[in-house]
């Protein structure tokens, strides 16, 4: 139960972590609000991947605070997946027109 120390197993874990920290520091939510949102997701799906719950909590809080809707996020997610499809392997993926 003591694997090598790496702060983040996947790049997206690190990005999701940093998003919560940065949004808290900007004052979008208090850390208590964040803990409550994360705890609620963990309680709902205790066996789900930790960072999947972290991401859910972010999306819920961002919508609750009026910073972004599920519809906006779904459209952008789709745009990113399409951009990945269109990017030759090994090149950085960028979102066209942005």
């Amino acid at each position: 139960m003591n694997p090598p120390d790496r702060a983040f197993a996947e790049p997206w874990h690190a990005q999701a972590f940093a998003l919560a920290v940065a949004l808290h520091e900007r004052g979008l939510f208090s850390w208590s609000e964040w803990s409550q949102a994360l705890s609620a997701e963990i309680a709902r799906a205790p066996e789900r991947d930790y960072y999947a719950n972290w991401l859910e909590a972010l999306e819920v809080l961002i919508a609750a605070k009026g910073a972004g809707t599920r519809v906006e996020l779904a459209a952008l997610t789709q745009a990113w997946l399409e951009a990945a499809e269109a990017t030759p392997h090994g090149q950085p993926i960028v979102l066209p027109g942005r």
Partner: peptide
Amino acid sequence: IAARVRAL
């Protein structure tokens, strides 16, 4: 899931 993070 990584695409969702990028979207955010």
